[in-house]
Design a protein around this nucleic acid. Structure first.
Lengths: 295, 295
DNA sequence: ATGATTCGATGAACAGGAGTCATGGATGCT
DNA sequence: AGCATCCATGACTCCTGTTCATCGAATCAT
């Protein structure tokens, strides 16, 4: 079998001009090297080199193989370096999955400093809201899960990295704008705008409306949070979003935020990683950076 | 060490979807394959795949290596096929060396049919007139020597493939044109045109002029035989060339050929190859084709 | 459910290949 | 001529890769 070894031998013999020197460089005896080549020649029925005086002269087959070696060996060596980087956690692809729309905005703020800090790490984002994040993590489809609703599970390690509050967003002129807080009943006559996910995954339902047996007059879904803000600004309804997101994206718009209930709805963004990967540098690096940025 | 084997394993496991199937295809036991991968993982400190139900799921490192495998393995396989062709004498580079100017014209007639017959053989021509052909052959610089003056030597096998006669070429109106043959003394007043090689390698000297202690009035050298014919046609001197070459290239020119001496100077083009390579298909093929074409 | 089947992992034992050591022949240098 | 160097080769050793046998886990059929 034509393998890497014989190619390495040929290259070194060519580079150094002698079998003895090549053997030394490859950390084997001259004899071993000679034997290896001899066996290769016998197996393939060709000569690789022939003695020419005291040194060697490659045959055509030898030249052929040498050319191959000079093309392939660098690729092996590069792959080995990459592999070492991967093993050391310096390089890899961080596949991020998210289970909440607003997480995306949060992730965007993270990505630039992270990529700068980890130049050899690729970054993949899966904004699939349909999948089960923990399952995806355990199935190795993603390496990091960003979610506001951590579902504890052996094998997954969650870390809260960012606290925020879900608030109601209304138009400046909306009656609720003047009040400090909204109650479930206040939404009975409203058009509620949310992202398009099932009701069980909307905190406004599970932690606010459903316990009080209330429903909004109408419920409409839109894809992006920016659009949600625009609709509210246009008096087309009210929305529920993280407070920080409204502060950032809603600046300048005629909108106001209102606390939901008396205590407000507190949330935390959690990062989930597979247990056992806490030690992988570039994954731990992400979590560390996230905590640091939320301060 | 990252070698060909592990790459082959990864590719087959990916292709067939199971270790067992891959092992069978690679003609080793499932156990051997599993062990090999395990050792590789330990050595490099990375995981290549992980059990996912009954089958496997590649890790990032695994995907990395798989991509490498799909790039490198075809190159190995192609190289092996080429190597087998080389071993079988179906492929190679026929490096041809020539020791005579007119041989070049002869070789040109050979090359087209030869290349058609041996599509996988490359063809290199070294028109170095300075080197010692037999030494070049033995030094593996060339594989075939075309020469009109074979110097017998152990290790080299000569085969005559084409007989011809050296003739004097003169202008139509030259006094010698009317005569059937020329004697050495006839050249005393002539301007002799030859190719630029040392006098010892010019038959007109060694076999004609020198034995008779004659010299031409003047001696000039030009590079190509075509130009020699043109000069003769322009009455700028006389030349000595193979009869067949004059017939071919001199057609239409106002020139005439004259026998040298009473018996003429007979020559043969010989092909020299290294002893031991008579069996190499594409070399033997050249010699066979040469003999066949000279009939 | 439950047993049968299939798959990959693993430990122990083994065989063969790859390496080392010692040596010989050939060549080149002084 | 003598010495140093280089590659080839035979004998021996040892490690590596392989097999065999077995296990646990997951899947499928009934």
């Amino acid at each position: 079998m034509l393998d890497r070894q014989i190619l390495a031998i040929l290259r070194e013999v060519d580079r150094l001009g002698s079998v003895t020197a090549a053997a030394e460089r490859l950390n084997v005896s001259q004899s071993a090297l000679s034997h290896t080549v001899r066996k290769f020649e016998e197996r393939h029925g060709i000569a690789i080199w022939m003695k020419k005086g005291r040194s060697l002269r490659f045959t055509q087959a030898g030249e052929h193989l040498l050319a191959l070696a000079q093309r392939l060996l660098p690729q092996f060596e590069h792959a080995e370096r990459v592999l070492a980087d991967v093993a050391a956690g310096r390089r890899g692809t961080l596949r991020v999955g998210m289970e909440c729309h607003p997480c995306q905005a949060w992730l965007m703020r993270m990505s630039a400093p992270y990529l700068a800090q980890w130049p050899d790490v690729d970054f993949e984002v899966r904004t699939a809201f349909r999948f089960d994040g923990v399952a995806a993590l355990l199935d190795n489809e993603i390496d990091l899960l960003i979610t506001p609703d951590p579902i504890e599970s052996t094998g997954v390690l969650f870390t809260p990295v960012f606290d925020y509050e879900l608030v109601l967003v209304v138009h400046d002129a909306h009656p609720l704008a003047a009040r400090g807080a909204a109650q479930p009943q206040d939404l009975l006559g409203e058009e509620l705008i949310t992202v398009p996910v099932s009701l069980e995954r909307l905190d406004i339902y599970t932690r606010f409306l459903v316990p009080a047996h209330c429903r909004p007059r109408h419920h409409k879904t839109v894809e992006t949070t920016e659009l949600m803000l625009q609709l509210v600004a246009a008096r087309r309804g009210v929305a529920v979003l993280p407070d920080w997101l409204v502060r950032e994206d809603g600046a300048g718009l005629p909108i106001r935020t209102v606390r939901l209930g008396t205590g407000g709805i507190g949330k935390s963004i959690h990062l989930g990683i597979r247990r056992g990967e806490e030690g992988v540098d570039y994954i731990a690096g992400f979590v560390a950076l996230a905590r640091q940025m939320s301060l």
